[in-house]
Amino acid sequence: MITPNQDGKQSRNGSLLFLFSASGLLLVIGVICSLKWGQSQVSWHTLYEAITYKGHEKAHLYIQTLRLPRALMACIVGIQLALAGLLTQLTTKNPLASPHIFGINAGAAFAVVLGLVAVPTFTNMGSILFAFIGAALGALLVWSLTGTGHKQYVRLALAGITIHFLLSSLTEGLILFNQQATDSMIFWLVGSLSQVAWKEIWLILPFFISGLLMFTFMLPSFRLLLVDDEIAAGLGQRIAIVRAVSMLLVIVLAGSAVALCGPIGFICLIVPHIARALVGSNLAVLAPLTALLGGALLVYADFISRFVAFPYESPVGIITSAIGAPFFIYLARKQGGAKVQ
């Protein structure tokens, strides 16, 4: 005999299965659309031959060397930014928090632009290294200004926004010293996937895999971030270490994404909220759904960016900002910086 509790559990499991299946299907459809449509039209037969590597004509190479790595990068970066946003909101206990707002993205962008201006032979690996250093320094600078006490998270938000605008202003100042690359830098600073190739995929893949493994391994500990620090400390848990590991993971995920694709805005902010509205705050379910939705959102945003000013391309950051800015205003009015539940 099935009890009401068992019936409710089965119903919830069925809903979760449908939700994850629909999210996965949405992501796959987005990748297929990204591969098929763009400045150059290809047939379904040509697309099939290209992704199965059964053809080597110009159209096949176009898909294999340009569209396929771009779609994969959009998926990877979307997942990284969404998970980084989820961790930032948990760590700061602020639903309006994200690496973009709290100095991490701005620090990474500043360091990368500094490297581009100062080092003539600046490589992609160098940009990743500089991005990590800039993200870490930005985060440390924000945290050093917050202090301790019951108003720590309020000061954290104010310090983060201040440092973000400071670093953004310094970045814009650096661009003035490199007039030859101003257009490409501005395009990158908005967030762009247009220059992605397979070498960028191989560069970001180790950080992507290690970040996911680290996130999975630390998932039980990250549940402590859902409760008050006093309660976690009373249970004998080292909440300071968990928070430090969390911010380190945010730097790895967001820093590598910013280094290769620029500071794409609002993915970190809106995706965790959408996932939380669908499944609640159970991290075992919330984290994978956040990753799926993050990948899907950036894939579709990149696809749409190709047609905004067709036949020219627009930075994907314009699309994510157009989606995220109204959402941010809605959250600010509704929650006003309330703590994550």
Rank of each mutant, 00 (worst) to 15 (best):
P4H: 13
P4L: 05
N5G: 10
N13T: 06
G14V: 03
S15L: 07
L16A: 04
L19K: 12
L19R: 04
G24Y: 09
G24A: 12
L26F: 12
G30L: 03
L35V: 03
W37G: 01
S40F: 09
H45S: 15
H45Q: 12
T52E: 08
Y53P: 15
H56T: 08
E57Q: 11
Y62V: 11
Y62M: 04
Q64F: 05
L66G: 13
A71Y: 04
L72F: 15
L72N: 02
C75E: 04
I76D: 05
I76A: 04
I76G: 12
V77M: 07
A84P: 09
K93F: 05
K93C: 07
P95N: 08
P95F: 01
L96F: 01
A97T: 02
P99V: 00
F102V: 10
N105M: 05
A108H: 11
V112W: 12
L114W: 06
G115L: 05
L116S: 13
L116A: 03
A118F: 10
P120C: 07
P120S: 10
T123C: 10
G126I: 12
I128H: 13
L129S: 11
F132Y: 04
I133D: 11
I133M: 15
A136P: 12
L137W: 15
G138V: 06
G138E: 02
A139H: 02
A139N: 10
S144G: 06
T146R: 15
T146K: 15
H150W: 08
V154R: 10
V154P: 10
A157H: 04
L176P: 03
N178Q: 13
N178C: 12
D183W: 03
W188R: 01
S194P: 09
S194C: 05
I204C: 15
L205R: 09
F208L: 08
I209G: 14
L212F: 06
L212C: 06
M218W: 04
F222T: 00
L225R: 04
D228M: 07
D229R: 10
A232H: 04
G234K: 12
Q237Y: 05
I241F: 03
L248T: 08
L248E: 08
L248G: 14
V250T: 15
L253A: 13
G255M: 14
C261S: 15
C261I: 03
G262T: 02
P263Y: 02
F266Y: 08
I267W: 00
C268N: 02
H273N: 11
V279T: 02
V279D: 02
S281A: 10
N282K: 04
P288Q: 00
P288A: 00
T290C: 03
A291N: 08
L292E: 12
L292D: 06
G294R: 12
G294T: 12
D302C: 07
F303P: 01
I304L: 08
V308K: 04
V308Y: 07
A309R: 03
A309L: 01
E313D: 07
E313M: 02
S314H: 06
I318M: 03
T320E: 02
G324I: 00
F327P: 14
L331T: 11
R333K: 03
K334G: 06
Q335T: 05
Q335P: 07
G336L: 01
G336D: 00
G337E: 00
Q341P: 10
Q341L: 13
